[in-house]
Amino acid sequence: MPDEIKSPSASPAGEPKPTADQPAVSGGVKAADSGSVPSDSTVPAANAPSAKSEVPAKAASAAPATPPAAKPAAAAKAPVPTPVAWNSPMVAKLTSSYGSGIEPLTYAGQNYMVVDRSLIPELLQVLRNEEGFDYCVDITAVHYLQREKQFDVIWVLYSFARNERIRVKTQIRDGETLPTSVPIWTGANWLEREVYDMFGIKFDGHPDMKRILLPDGWKGHPLRKDYGILQQDNEWVQINLGIESGQ
């Protein structure tokens, strides 16, 4: 199995790691100089790092995909992995047409791109029709309360032809909507409804934009970080039993 892209910190233990997200037949997909970073360029685990920061593309000198088995598996602290640039012919093609709107990265051997909201759904359409990502595995979101653009919305895509899995991530503000991807993948229907149900992110043009798991009359969107885990319980007890909740 080609191992062009390795977790940058691939510790020896990581070498025979289950390569579930490692493309098996993608030999031609990625250039060999993709961002493998020599393990010395990483930070020790102790400094709980703000590793989300995008590390600039390290022109990683052709560090072979598998670093030498130097440290024993039981090394006390594995180096902290950080996202590195993801290079491949597909990415080169996409960045040449969309420029700085796309930031392709690799983390723990998994490829993803952070894209500008304005490129959705055009980019998704291109990925499906031209790059063969015909299977929309999942659509989900993450809420960051402190950020100005509060939500990450993530599409997990898979291509049967290339046996490759990637993620597309975009950031939006609270109250902002996204165009639906149901015309691209029919299966996005329920996934988008769940994102709406849990985060309150609406998808324009969705055929049936309503709650899916929670009842229609539910207040709030539970997976937002400002939705307290006991809030619903306290409210229910207060209204229906007229007492303070014991929780």
């Binding site: 685990a45 590793a51 989300k52 983390y107 999942d138 989900t140 997990v156 899995r165 993620r167």
Partner: peptide, 21 residues
């Protein structure tokens, strides 16, 4: 305390692709 980052991994459960993000 895993280092900050995000990972998607999936397995073939008896019913199909079971993924964790």
């Amino acid at each position: 305390k895993p280092a900050a980052g995000e990972v998607y991994h999936s397995i073939e459960a008896p019913k199909g692709e079971l993924g964790y993000f």
